[in-house]
Nucleic acid binder design. Structure first.
Lengths: 198, 198
DNA sequence: GGTAAATCCGACCATGTGGTCTCTTTATAG
DNA sequence: CTATAAAGAGACCACATGGTCGGATTTACC
């Protein structure tokens, strides 16, 4: 694999596990057995490096795990349930889970680096727009109750997912997942379309 | 005010705003016009310093904003609604809001400092226990539906609160708050006791 | 007033950081 | 084979960090 790819992959891995500010370039280079020269040949600075990682790896990762799985014409509530379940199941089985990578970076850079924050917020916006659209389509197709505020539901869903991934890192991730999913279903039941054949 | 108190207060302030690892002791000392000698007279190390801040300030802060307000014999759903609303309203009006302080520190120290994580998780547990107890009491008093899983509801509530506070830091905190609260009420409506006088 | 303890000062140290620069190696093309 | 550019090595720099230490200053108490 090309050096540049290896640098980005290892960078994302370490930044996720240890945080951006607590991971030195030397850490990454040591792990890959590379030198400063190799790094600064491919990237202008640590910040430039991270921004490329965001665009090349993080954005795709979020897309493939949280956005693409909820696309389709089926019941959005079913799709979202399965999507969250899968994402959390992956986390449960990952002994090196440090929470939602996007949420973690949002927390770390908030108020510290506006440039990076803009790139991260862009990903958040894409997710939000897709969620809202999917929910609206679901409403149009008769899966959701007519009175549902789709923007509000999207915010609620994103919030709860970010939060539960943080909570899961503390203790008993499997139990946390189970409890979360049960209440997510409860919430979904309250916004789904009321049965017409009464 | 005593030097030790000033150090702790300013420390919490800066650690919250900039993060623990990105705030140097010199930053804090400069702001207070103190010297290294003063600092290391009162504290053994940066870590010891932070642990004392957790126990003396952070724990009380969480207690007074998230735990104490939901104590009482009224409808717990009403109390929690008001508690979250108040906490988020404070955040909205604070131009220097960086999300839920507890959630932020959990994210920052996860996988990096086990000692500090234990102290933080202790606070999380206290919050959780109080929430569960309050919900169970509410169920006993006929405010919640008999079938509600109180542990699950508590996890769901903590998750969503952590998450929305993270989301609020990105953009449009007021709108996020409004949307979140509307769906929280929706969720609460689905777990409240069904009307008896049918 | 004197003494001792509490409090604080600030120079200093070892270490680690992001980043630069010169030089060497390796591939590519004619 | 050779000229040329891409790719990488690693010594080096300026600076920041957590922490130490001997000394100065203030406070409390007899």
């Amino acid at each position: 694999m090309a050096t540049m790819q290896r640098l980005q992959n290892t960078g994302l891995e370490l930044f996720y596990a240890q945080g951006y500010y607590d991971t030195s370039i030397d850490d990454i280079l040591k792990k890959l057995d590379l030198s400063k020269g190799a790094f600064y040949y491919h990237f202008d600075s640590k910040e430039d490096y991270f921004i490329q990682i965001i665009q090349n790896l993080l954005a795709r990762k979020i897309y493939s795990t949280l956005i693409e799985p909820i696309e389709g014409h089926d019941n959005p509530l079913t799709l979202i349930t399965k999507c969250f379940d899968d994402a959390m199941e992956t986390a449960v089985h990952n002994e090196m889970d440090y929470g939602c990578i996007l949420s973690n970076f949002l927390t770390e850079f908030n108020g510290k680096n506006e440039v990076i924050m803009r790139h991260l917020n862009e990903i958040v916006t894409v997710w939000e727009v897709n969620l809202v659209t999917t929910l609206q389509k679901g409403k149009f197709n008769g899966y959701l109750d007519r009175h549902v505020d789709c923007e509000a539901a999207a915010t609620f869903l994103m919030s709860s997912y970010f939060g539960v991934r943080t909570l899961m890192t503390s203790a008993a991730p499997s139990a946390k997942k189970y409890r979360f999913m049960s209440q997510l279903r409860q919430y979904f039941k309250s916004i789904e379309a009321k049965s017409v054949n009464s």
